[in-house]
Design a binder for these strands. Sequence first.
DNA 1: GTCTATAACTCGATAGAC
DNA 2: GTCTATCGAGTTATAGAC
Lengths: 204, 204
Amino acid sequence: MVKTVADTSARDKILEAARKIFLEKGMDGARMQDIALEAGINKALLHYYFTSKDVLFEQVFSEAFIRFIPRLNRVIESDTPFFKKIEIFCEEYLNFLIANPYMPLFILNELNRQPDEFLKRIWSHQKPNLKSLFIQIEEEVKAETIRPIHPAHLVMNLMSMCIFPFIGKPMLQFLTKISDKEFAVLMEQRKKEVPAFIIQSIKR
Amino acid sequence: MVKTVADTSARDKILEAARKIFLEKGMDGARMQDIALEAGINKALLHYYFTSKDVLFEQVFSEAFIRFIPRLNRVIESDTPFFKKIEIFCEEYLNFLIANPYMPLFILNELNRQPDEFLKRIWSHQKPNLKSLFIQIEEEVKAETIRPIHPAHLVMNLMSMCIFPFIGKPMLQFLTKISDKEFAVLMEQRKKEVPAFIIQSIKR
DNA sequence: GTCTATAACTCGATAGAC
DNA sequence: GTCTATCGAGTTATAGAC
């Protein structure tokens, strides 16, 4: 089963093209024709490598996550001091999002469309350990190192402020006339800004 | 051009059905057949009232916004004290989102798909006056009533914490095992929780 | 206004030549 | 492995009777 050079190359080109098109247009919006065009081949060859659109979709999708989720969990489950942990969490999360800006909208879309099937395929073995984070927050509140706050609200705030700007980019840019370049700078700043905002709010 | 009762009624039933189906499945996922079924009529009649899917889509979409945006702007442009303004802004926003939970994902999706066309149609005459909010934040910083913060970050944080939980609901529920009922309670709480979180972070 | 029937079209998938 | 050509399912949209 030795792969030729051409073999690997075509398959890779397809995956790269598929990632781009899927992330841009979602599962429904993406056309096999678009992906083939982007990859510089035709539809038939696409089906030669990936028997169906579903198969291709799943392949593309699980890729990015397989590396990201364990990284997040390593942060969550480490015994770093709580405030420091928030800083690292945000930095890891924002790094991933800056590298994969279309990912969140894409995922949240599919999650809303067919929650059960999608969740089970993607997160059955690799899911962020928010449970552990919840417990930690409750302990910090009890120890009075942070003011009383429901863990769900704190975690929602944390995730919201990291993820939302990437989903809302076109809206935010339209409403505020921020350029692409300025937006990129803002996202870099948020690695420090978001943890600072949170810590300022919950510290005692 | 007097409309009969049946006339108005059928048209309204279509709009209501379309809103439901579009919000659930997005522009691509929604089927005219689904909408006709939901409205208790058939596809042909649907096309009688709305010549194309695009027309129906735009109609449904702009409706919700025409009432919401002016409300928001009234809050932004009022001379309420800044912290109070944040409280009212969050309450208005969350009220709208609780009543239209599928709206944000739907909108952000379409915004990402065809930014120019969509934005111009929807927001050319009715857009949230974030500019005014930016200026105000700068003034508050200058007056030292709040700590130094880039207006863009503060506004992003504000909008993120209001909007994101509705977009990320399926994800958050899967990761945290929160029930629908508990989630609804949390969203009610956020009317107080989000402004409190923000004010705690920016006050001096 | 409302319906049935069907035209026109899009798109995923396959057959078969090279 | 890669292509052209085409099928067949599913959808939007229209024609035309009532």
